Structures are given as structure tokens and as C-alpha cells.
Computed example of a mutant assay.
Amino acid sequence: MMIHGRQAIGLGLLVVGCLSACQGPWFVAGADYKPLTEQLQAQNWQAADALTLQLLLRGSDRVQEGWLAEADVVALDCSTLLTIDRLWTVHSQGRFGWSRQQQIWRAVGGGDYAPAMAIAFGERVGWRELSTPQWRSYEMLTFATDAPVGHLPATTGNGVSGAVWGGVATLGQRLQACQAPAMVTLLREDYYATCDRTPSADPCRLKAATERWGETADWGGVGLPQHLTELEQALAQHRWIAADNITRILFDHYRQAHWAEFGGTDGHQLIPCYLLTAIDSLWMDYSRGHFGLTAQAEILGDLKLLPAENHPLSREQMLVFYQAVGWPERPPDRFESPYQSAYDAVSPEQVPKGHYPYYMGYSFSTYGSGYDERWRWHLDQSCGFNSQIRG
């Protein structure tokens, strides 16, 4: 049953950034996730896809009907959605999951539902035949690890089975409603849940360092939710420079902490997925896919500038990217303003795609930056960045 729905698609899901803690517990909000986890661990993707739909149907008391209406999707339990997506994301190494599909939707344009957008999305995730072109039947999908990125889950998809009214569109709306900034605080607790047992692990050492630098449970009295709320307000008003500075503050906790704890210039490697993805989601949402880490990764992929593992980038390669996103060849020093005023308080289309986030990591001449200028090339693929292009 092919259903496209009329709902606006506001895909602001936070990828739940835990890698080890997401193996359990099996029961969250009364649901049993062990069967789904076992199928995902075994890479039995079709069985996992069916179990995903069943979890949503049981949670909505819609097993007999076999599909979810719009009202059912609106009422879906947030912890259920986030837990299922977390399991898909982790066990597919970032290739599958609703948050993965969200990134691709944004990459093809995002915004409200439109037939052309749905077609572009379907072609990108392998739900449409490029040669025909026709939507593939569910039986013709690829239930394998090498399926196109974002190919699964498909029972909740838009265009192949339609067991959820509006598919990706309505799920995206509900996921956005579930991403209240306070949720990030809960995800932070989840990310560090094992630190009492493994305090020597790098993320746990970083946790202790970030807390010394101000990332207490409420981020130094200001509050992580408040930072994200301020970021969202600035983005909604197209105050791009203000939003970029808030982004720098959020990332800077990890830059400072990593420098203090580990030294070196690869502090980005331990920025938790929950924070990277929360910030990226806000940038992508309010810029209509024009700004954000995902937008920058798209440009890097188009320019074929995502290197193989441990492959150094030349200065010439970096300059190609800088030119594409409208960055000057040489970043300003610490005595100059890094921003072009013409690129603030305007519609995103008036600024080169991928221009923001701009300051963090680019101003590599800043004293004690603690970030190598190449950090955007090496974002954690398990967070859903860059693997989409590499894969």
C-alpha cells in the first residue's frame, strides 16, 4: 500500500549517541526490545524491519489493523521511537535508521512534503527503480548490509509499504516533537551510563574533564537545554552569526576538555553523537538543508574530498572546499572579525551552501585552538556523518 500523506516533514530527530549502553536494558517504556536487538545483531534486516513495525503497532494498540493512522503517530511514545532508532543506527554502523533517513531527506531538499521530493528521496535510498522509474514493491527491496544508505527500515517507509500513514513524513513530525532540548540531557546521561564501571575509557575520562571545564549536569549553571534553546531561537530568526557563536560555545567544552585531558588536536573525535546530531539537526531544519555538518559532508562528497582512513588532505584540497562554501583562503586571526556581515540575517539561499557552522575549527590560527582545521573531514561515522557519502 503506497501512502504519501500530506503532512509537513519536520525531521529533527536526535540520533541517540550511545554505542555501548544501547545494548540494554531491553525494557524501555514497557516494550521488549530484545528480539529486535537480536535480529539486528545477527543482521537479519528483514526480520528486524518487521519487528520494528510490530513494536509501533503494539505500542499504539493497532496490531489488528496492521497500520498506523496519523493520530496514532502523533501519540507514539518518544522513548520507543528513540530506542528503536538507536538500535538500528548502532547495529548498522550508521547506515540505517529513521535518523539516517532524516539526513537524506534534508540532503535532497527537506521541508514540506512534495511529490518531487519523495521521488528524489526514494531514488536516493533505493526504493525506486532508476531505469523504469517505478517504486519498488516491498519484496524487491534489499535486506542486506550493503543496501543503499537509508534503505531500512522500510515497513514504516513512504512509498513502498505505507504501514505508517505518511511514512517518513509523519514519523519525522513525531520525532521532532520528541526532540525537546531537555531530551539531550537525558541522552547525555545515557551516553555516560557505563562510566561508573569503566572510568578509564576515553569518553569517561573526557566526561570528567568536561565537568571540570563547566559541563556539569546543567552545563555550568546555564544549562545544555538552554544553550540549545538559544541556538534554535537564533536559527529561527536567521541570526546565523549568533547561532554560529552558540555552536562554537557548545563544541568548545569538548575542545578545551580534550586538550586538557589528552592533548593534541583531535578533540572532535570524542564529541558525543547526541551533541553533534542535535546541533546539526537544528542547523539543517532552520536552513532548509542549506547549513549544517550534514550539508558540509554533502559538499565534501560531491567534491570527492572525503579521504580514505588516515589519508592526509593537501592544502589544495582544503582550499577547494573553502571556495565551495564561501570561506576565505586564509581565516582571520584572533584580532579580526571572522564573519561577513552580508551573510547574516538573510535567507539561507543568499549564502553559499555549507557556509555554516563556520568558526569552530576553521580559525586554526586562533591561539590554543585544540582543533585541527581538518576536523570536519573526520567526523565520527557512527554518528551518521560522512559514511553516507563514503558508503
Rank of each mutant, 00 (worst) to 15 (best):
A21G: 13
N310I: 02
Y343S: 04
Q41D: 13
L276A: 05
I246N: 08
V108N: 05
E230P: 06
A324I: 00
Q388W: 08
L171P: 10
H227K: 13
E215W: 08
E298H: 12
T156E: 02
G126Y: 04
L19V: 07
T210V: 15
W105Y: 14
N245V: 08
V160L: 01
W259M: 07
K34T: 04
L81D: 02
S341Q: 14
Q233R: 12
T247Q: 08
Q7T: 08
D146M: 03
P348M: 00
A154D: 03
S387W: 15
T366E: 15
E349M: 03
Q93V: 09
S60Y: 05
L141C: 02
R248T: 15
L379T: 04
Y343N: 13
G66E: 01
W219N: 07
Q256W: 07
G214N: 11
T277Y: 02
P148R: 13
A278M: 01
A114Q: 15
K34W: 11
L87H: 07
K34G: 04
L231I: 00
C78W: 01
W375V: 00
T210C: 10
K34N: 10
L276S: 10
S161D: 12
V149M: 05
W98P: 06
H268W: 10
A180E: 14
S314K: 11
A118C: 09
T155P: 15
Y191G: 04
G384P: 11
L55F: 06
